[in-house]
Computed example of a mutant assay.
Amino acid sequence: MSGIVIVGAGQAAASMAARLRKKGYDGAITVVGAEPVAPYQRPPLSKGYLLGEMPLERLMLRANDWWANNDISLRLDCSVTEIDPKAQVVQISDGESLDYSELALCTGATPRRLPASLGGNLGNVFTVRSLADVDAMRAQFRPGQRLVVIGGGYIGLEAAAVARKLGLEVALVEAAPRILGRVACAQTADAIRALHQENGVEIIEGLGLLSLRGDTVVTAVELEDGRVIEADFAIVGIGVTPNEEIAREAGIHCENGIAVDAQGRCSEDHIWAAGDCAAFPGGAGPLRLESVGNAIDMGELVAENMLGAAQDYSPKPWFWSDQFDSKLQIAGLNIGYDSVVARAGEGASFWYFRDGALIAVDALNDARAYMIGKRLIEGGKTVTPEQVADPETDLKALLK
């Protein structure tokens, strides 16, 4: 009997399946996941789970019996190997085929790895994406071990912070002129850099990697200026690539992800996409968001649209990152910003403007600034750079 098949078993898939049942869909739902475990939270992997503060059961998005109680079939430790859009059938790696009335692609993304020519195939070189990734590296997190992190994005910085808290020696290498170059303003980067340096992380910016050294496992990292940093292991955090291969092979249009319309439909009938893999219409072209908030919101919206809601996706982006004992909270999208205003409060916040309009806020240890900024952005409220810069301005009053 055909029903809804969801490919992928992450946050978007779990949110979609739950929404389908909540909205009254009583047909078959099958979730196909490549990992051997039920859907779980990914953000805590590089934070609480790696620190040993969050046990495995707390990672799970749903209790073990929830899936059976809601008559949702989990097909774990297997993957979809082929999609036939005309016959509306998918082939599974265990040899079975599944008919579908609607198909949702929630295939996520894969971390980029260093090429073998740079030593990326050596042992003790890790990425941070899955439970298996973190379980594989956990034994290395012992006091005195030497870690080199390649990449100064949020994942690399979070791993560096955890390592220092556990007593490791840590160096972080970013080839770009500064950390967080693609995702945050210089002021936010300055604050995060200072936090890491205060906690003993060596930050090396504007200097590329020449190679990882070692016979079978990494023993050192050589930089472009000839500097050599000894290492017991390395973590590579240089971004991710959307998992679009299975869609592309089926003739589905892809453009830096699986291309969808404003309601989440792919270029082939009865096929949808949501989460990290999905590229939806944005102001300046296809937009792909890698965040929990996007996975939840888009997964739920696509579920409703499968059932006929016909709603366009209007993302309300929010993100967060834990660095040592500090929390960075982000609201909005800073794409195309032309000015940044810093404001002191409970902590520090950095307000992004484009053509005089507020588009995003970074709040470091300042939950009040985050919440006010988020509500201002989502409500389309008018606030000027001058108002934000003035410490006498009561920003909360602007919400009225």
Rank of each mutant, 00 (worst) to 15 (best):
P36M: 03
A234E: 05
L59E: 02
G283I: 06
Y154M: 15
G200W: 12
S321V: 14
M306V: 05
L98W: 03
A68C: 03
T127P: 04
R368V: 03
P111N: 11
E57F: 11
T110L: 09
R213K: 15
V32G: 05
V37F: 13
D269W: 11
Q323S: 04
K47M: 01
L61M: 02
S349M: 06
A273R: 07
I359C: 00
I204A: 12
A160C: 09
E378Y: 12
I203M: 15
G239L: 11
G282T: 09
L210S: 15
R19H: 09
L333M: 10
V218A: 14
D312S: 13
A63L: 07
W351L: 11
N64K: 13
P36C: 07
L207S: 10
Y337R: 01
V361G: 11
P242E: 12
D338E: 01
I179A: 13
T241G: 08
S117H: 09
G123C: 08
T382D: 10
L131F: 05
N69R: 14
Y313E: 13
F141Q: 04
A109E: 01
L131S: 03
A28K: 15
G380R: 06
H253F: 05
T241I: 13
F324N: 05
T241C: 09
R138V: 08
G293R: 02
G257K: 09
A176H: 01
A273T: 11
A363P: 14
F350N: 14
A9M: 07
A34T: 08
L118E: 06
V302I: 00
A34P: 00
D215N: 15
P143Y: 07
R42F: 01
F141K: 05
I155F: 11
A234M: 13
Q91V: 04
E174C: 12
Q263H: 12
R138K: 15
P391K: 08
G237T: 09
G239D: 09
G299Q: 00
R113K: 15
N256Q: 15
L56N: 01
L166N: 04
K400W: 03
R248K: 12
A278H: 03
A104Y: 03
E386T: 10
N121T: 09
A303F: 08
L328C: 09
Q187G: 12
T384S: 07
M54R: 10
A344R: 12
A231I: 10
G123A: 12
A163N: 00
I258S: 09
V128F: 02
H253P: 00
I6W: 09
L168C: 04
E249V: 01
